[in-house]
Amino acid sequence: MRRGDFVGHVAWTGAGILYVLGAEGLVRAAASAAPGAFSFVQISDSHIGYTGPANADVRGTLAQTVKDINAMPVQPTFVIHTGDVTHLSKATEFDDARSILSTLRAPLITIPGEHDVIGTEGPKRYAAAFGRRDAQGRGWSSWDQGGIHFVALINVGEGETMGILGDEQLAWLEKDLAARKSDTPIVVFGHVPLFAVAPEWGWTTGDGTKAIAMLRRFSAATVLNGHIHQIVEHTDGAIRFATARATAFPQAAPGTPGASPGPLKPAPGTLLDVLGYRTVEVGAQAAWQDHSLAQA
C-alpha cells in the first residue's frame, strides 16, 4: 500500500464494507484496515455538567463510551478527547469528568474546548485536571508515535474567544512541521474545525487556513476535530478533515434553517444513535470508523 493512501477517505457503510478513496482518487473496497495497525480512539464533547433536555445523563453516556472502548479486544494506543470535556468549566465538572475518564484502560490525551476554559478559573482547572506536562504555550504539543507525527492544536481561549490559533502557536507549528519529511504521515487534532464548516455559528478557525497551508506539502495529513457534535468530512488536496460525534448531545446540521448551534433534543429513543466515538487505524494506510453508542 502506498504511503499516500494514509489519508484514504473511509466511510463505514454499516454493511461491513470499508470503502477507501486512495490518493489516486479511485474508490476501492477493503475488508478492514491493516491488521495489527497502530490504532487510537477519538472521543469528544462530553459537556459534563449539562443538565438540559437533550441528554439528562451526560455522565452516563460518557461512562458508556468508556465502557465500550474498554471492551475493545485490542486496546488503542491512546484515547484522545478533542475538547468540551465540561460544560461550564466548574471544578465539580472536572472532578466528575476525571473520575469517569480515569477508568479508561488506554492512556488518555485531551485538548480543551471553549467550554473548558471559561472565565479566569477555567483554564487553570483544565490544566490541573488534564494538562500535558510536555505542552507548549497555551497547551499545544506534538509527538511521534508509530511512525506518525501527531500534533495537538489549541484553538480556544485565545483573545477571550474561540476559533483562533494565534501567531505564537502558528510560529511554533511552522517550526515543528519544518523538521518533518513530506512523506511523514501527519495527524492533527483540534477542538474547533480548522476548516470553515459554518462560520456564522462559530464552526471555523479564523486563522486555520495558515495551518492548512503548512500541511499542504505533506503527502498524508489528517485533521480530526470535535465541537460540532456530528460527523462532517471534508477534503482539501491531500488533507483529509473529519469532525466527530459527541458523547453528550447532537447539534443541528450546519446551515439548517431556523436552527442555532446549541443542544438539539433528539427524537425519543434515538439519543444513543447520534452519540459515539471514532476508531482510527494507521498502518500502511489510515482508516477511521465511527461507532454510535447504540451499536455496542
Binding site: 467550554h115 471559561i118 477571550e160 474561540m162 462559530g202
Partner: peptide
C-alpha cells in the same frame, strides 16, 4: 466576566461610569 451561566441562571453587574461598553459570549463569539 459573568463566567459560565447555565440555563435559568442570572448574573448582575453595576455600571459605574458613563460610556458604551461592548460585550460578547466567549463560547459563542458571534
Amino acid at each position: 466576566d459573568s463566567e459560565g451561566l447555565n440555563q435559568g441562571e442570572k448574573w448582575t453587574h453595576a455600571f459605574a461610569k458613563a460610556g458604551t461598553i461592548k460585550y460578547h459570549c466567549t463560547v459563542h463569539p458571534f
